[in-house]
């Protein structure tokens, strides 16, 4: 085994502002929140669900009516969030609590700004702390806070009925730690040294580039390292003319399936160095590397492939790789 012990790792951060079409029931709920009111739905069995269901869990019918609940309620269970995470309701320690609002038969999850875990208990009476400006989102309730003993309810609806809220935006950010497999890591370390390393499957004898560590056809570890030349054949390709969010290469560009000499599987890379209209199946190409100072453990060390000037490979030489 030639695996380097530590696989390569790097962060992968992705995000997208998803939209949510609310539909008739949740639209009323969000619109009410914009007006600093909380609605629940009355089920066929008389139970008021807050937040409201879209379909009755007993009869599966849409709710016949939405009714106002709260705004105060009691904590039915809770846990302490000692170290809040990105995107959570409060930046300092708080409680996640199930809160049954007055008039409701079910509990909703929200944050309670209690100051300390010692101030939290099941049965604690809480009231919403509304956001300074409301938009028609669950975040219009900034959090809940304990009611002071004897404190009157602070129900302060907005004076003007808000515009109906039918759509909301839900930004999603995901932070991953991406780990390359041992096989891929040795291929990437090869790239950092200007080498193209593949692996041969001991069962079928096929050479995989990039290395994967395991042959996907035979399911056995691929242990034999094979160094490949920097030349190959374009087996097929497409000309990408389509822009999309997050794209890192500006269209139009040619994405080619390249079969390195000695490899048994193609990989995708850019074909530059000639007009897109001149790229063809069977075209011989050579890797064009970035300046050595810019190399890392990435396939991007190869800036692109360019025509090598050799005669085209005959179709039969690569037909079985299509």
């Amino acid at each position: 085994m030639t695996y380097v012990t530590q696989p390569l790792r790097a962060p992968l951060d992705i995000g997208f502002d998803y939209t949510r079409s609310l539909g008739p029931t949740l639209s009323q709920f969000m619109t009410a929140l914009a007006g600093r009111r909380i609605l629940g739905s009355r089920g066929a069995d008389g139970t008021v669900h807050a937040p409201p269901f879209e379909y009755d869990p007993v009869t599966f019918a849409p709710p016949a009516e939405l009714v106002e609940v709260g705004p105060e309620g009691i904590v039915t269970s809770w846990t302490w969030m000692a170290q809040p995470l990105e995107g959570q309701p409060l930046p300092h320690p708080f409680a996640w609590a199930l809160i049954r609002l007055d008039g409701a038969g079910t509990a909703m999850l929200h944050a309670v700004d209690a100051g300390s875990a010692a101030a939290m208990r099941t049965g604690l009476r809480v009231r919403p702390r509304w956001a300074a400006s409301t938009t028609g989102s669950i975040r219009d309730i900034a959090c809940f806070v304990p009611c002071a003993p004897g404190e009157p309810g602070q129900h302060a609806p907005q004076e003007h009925a808000p515009q109906p809220v039918t759509m909301m935006t839900s930004p999603v950010l995901l932070h991953y730690e991406h780990t390359a497999s041992p096989g891929e890591s040795s291929y990437l370390r090869g790239l950092a040294a200007g080498r193209l390393l593949g692996q041969r499957c001991p069962a079928c004898g096929k050479v995989y580039f990039p290395s994967r560590g395991v042959c996907p056809a035979d399911g056995v570890p691929a242990t034999d390292e094979v160094e490949l030349p920097h030349t190959g054949t374009v087996t097929t390709f497409c000309v990408v003319n389509v822009p999309f969010p997050g794209q890192r290469v500006t269209p139009p560009y040619v994405a080619g399936a390249i079969l390195l000499d000695g490899a048994d599987i193609t990989f995708q890379h850019l074909i530059l160095g000639c007009p897109a209209s001149e790229v063809r199946m069977g075209m011989r190409v050579r890797a064009v590397w970035k300046p050595r100072a810019e190399w890392g453990t990435t396939a991007e060390n190869i800036d692109h492939f360019r025509p090598s000037g050799e005669p085209d490979a005959p179709y039969d030489s690569y037909a079985r790789h299509l």
Binding site: P245, G246, A255
Partner: peptide, 22 residues
């Protein structure tokens, strides 16, 4: 309509060459 499938299908993980497009 709640998202963008081209984007969702074109996430480029670290170490790889970003050439795919949906």
């Amino acid at each position: 309509s709640e998202s963008n499938a081209m984007w969702a299908l074109s996430i480029t993980p670290p170490f790889s060459m970003p050439v795919l497009a949906g």
